[in-house]
Design a protein around this nucleic acid. Structure first.
Lengths: 168, 168
DNA sequence: ATAAAATATATAGATATCTATGTAAATAAT
DNA sequence: ATTATTTACATAGATATCTATATATTTTAT
């Protein structure tokens, strides 16, 4: 919800204020976690990579295929001009190439380069403290059930945001 | 983590790609949920309120007290100049006042006005579809256990981000 | 009492995002 | 076939955020 991303500086340790329905408290926690996890993550990124840039690099590396700007925008839930901008930065760093499709002159395929793959590898390495951190939490946290619940919640929201079951 | 806020447009319904450790998948879900929940939330905000502005208004209304710019910045986990900017907008709309403290000339107290309170009330009303939506989800979602797990996760991250137990 | 350090806020500049719109190419309609 | 519509990407302008720094005030040290 963003608006409720409110740390309690009062006495207890709940997020959100008393009057919030529990769903709002959950959303407040989720906002705060997203924000802090992003902070932790970005601190570890090398070579002036932004998290948006690494996201694209990582996706192209793992899928092992090129994708169009629009496909990437959908995949990362950002506006198309936002993804155009991110890809532009990656092109400037020579981590990806953009080439007009041979079969459709409107489309541009984004493909990762060798330099990009190498950078992605280095970055994954430098993220190792993250793995350690999350493993350390596994004592106290049940990741699997949490994932299931969050997945359910996400699907509800996707329907809400993108209309009737836009999720494949 | 932001960088992994990646919708699968492939066949399954998991977030994140196969190779991710489960903690990364959880973080990916959390990012996506935060993003979509914010979208849903902002669509409902009236009077050109941003979620940041409503957050401050709502907090001041519920706490029933004035707070300083720095206190608000800490509460919402944003940089101090960011909160200065948000408060400035609220002052322009005459929803809050800023007054230099009588006991400390550096400090400015932010207090909600009657106009601000009224606006907050209207906004809470216009958010009613949100309550309905979250209630509708309660069939399939266990809000309470989820809240507990997320709370634990948040505390881990607070320690990580702000150093040893900055959380009161 | 004066000078130095710390604190609260504001300002400046940079960046990432958004919406609206422009441009070029492909598809559909006539 | 031509024209209109749709689609994919780029550009422009607005906004919210951040970091770095300036300014004013208070507190601390000498």
């Amino acid at each position: 919800m963003a608006s409720n991303k409110e740390r309690r500086i009062e006495s207890t340790s709940d997020a959100g204020l008393e009057a919030d329905p529990i769903a709002f408290k959950v959303m407040t926690e989720i906002d705060m976690i997203a924000s802090m996890a992003t902070t932790v993550f970005e601190r570890l990124l090398p070579e002036n990579l932004t998290s948006a840039q690494f996201g694209v690099l990582n996706r192209l590396a793992r899928l092992g295929m090129k994708e169009t700007v629009s496909e990437l925008a959908v995949a990362f839930m950002v506006a198309q001009p936002t993804m155009s901008s991110t890809v532009k930065k990656l092109v400037a760093k020579r981590f990806v190439t953009m080439r007009v499709s041979k079969t459709d002159g409107r489309v541009k395929h984004v493909a990762i380069t060798k330099r990009g793959l190498a950078c992605r590898e280095r970055t994954v390495q430098s993220l190792s403290p993250l793995y350690a951190m999350y493993e350390a939490m596994a004592d106290k946290l049940e990741w699997a059930p949490m994932l299931m619940q969050l997945n359910t919640l996400r699907h509800y929201l996707e329907t809400e945001v993108y209309g009737q079951d836009s999720a494949e």
